[in-house]
């Protein structure tokens, strides 16, 4: 029973997010699930929804998030032809870009923290 209640809370927030997304789509498109995430964050902060209310379902979904992507990964079987001629180039982009992102963001955050600490110390 508790699980059904948890699922209903999450689905309720999700569909409200979709509805809001639909209503404002004339001005600005924001995916409904992102709005739903923002709503759940607000509801948790205001205490209207408590972690205990959704603990099991959210824990299960977060733990097994990978499961829900498997069919998309398997679709690679029919999409491989699209990238077959350029897969080496794609790998170069993925590898170089990953290293670049981690080096740049890590270094900048570290330099920022060091300069903040110095400011505090002086």
């Amino acid at each position: 029973m508790k699980i059904i209640k948890e699922i209903l809370i999450i689905l309720g927030i999700y569909y409200s997010g979709l509805l809001i997304s639909d209503l404002i789509s004339g001005f600005f498109f924001i995916p409904g699930n992102i709005i739903g995430m923002g709503m759940l964050f607000l509801l948790l902060n205001t205490g209207i929804v408590k972690i205990e209310h959704i603990k099991h379902t959210s824990g299960f979904l977060l733990k097994h998030m990978g499961f829900f992507f498997i069919p998309l990964g398997a679709a690679f079987y029919v999409l491989f032809d699209v990238i077959r001629p350029v897969w080496v180039q794609i790998f170069v982009v993925l590898i170089v870009s990953s290293v670049f992102v981690m080096a740049v963001s890590g270094k900048i955050v570290e330099l920022f923290i060091i300069s903040e600490d110095k400011k505090e110390a002086s």
Binding site: I10, L11, I13, Y14, G17, L18, P31, G32, N33, I34, G36, M37, G38, M39, L40, F41, L44, N45, I51, I54, T57, S58, L61, L62, M65, F68, F69
Partner: peptide, 13 residues
């Protein structure tokens, strides 16, 4: 996957 994004609010919180 749609509702799954919603529960990402939990680690954020």
């Amino acid at each position: 996957l749609g509702p799954l994004v919603v529960v990402l609010a939990v680690p954020l919180y």
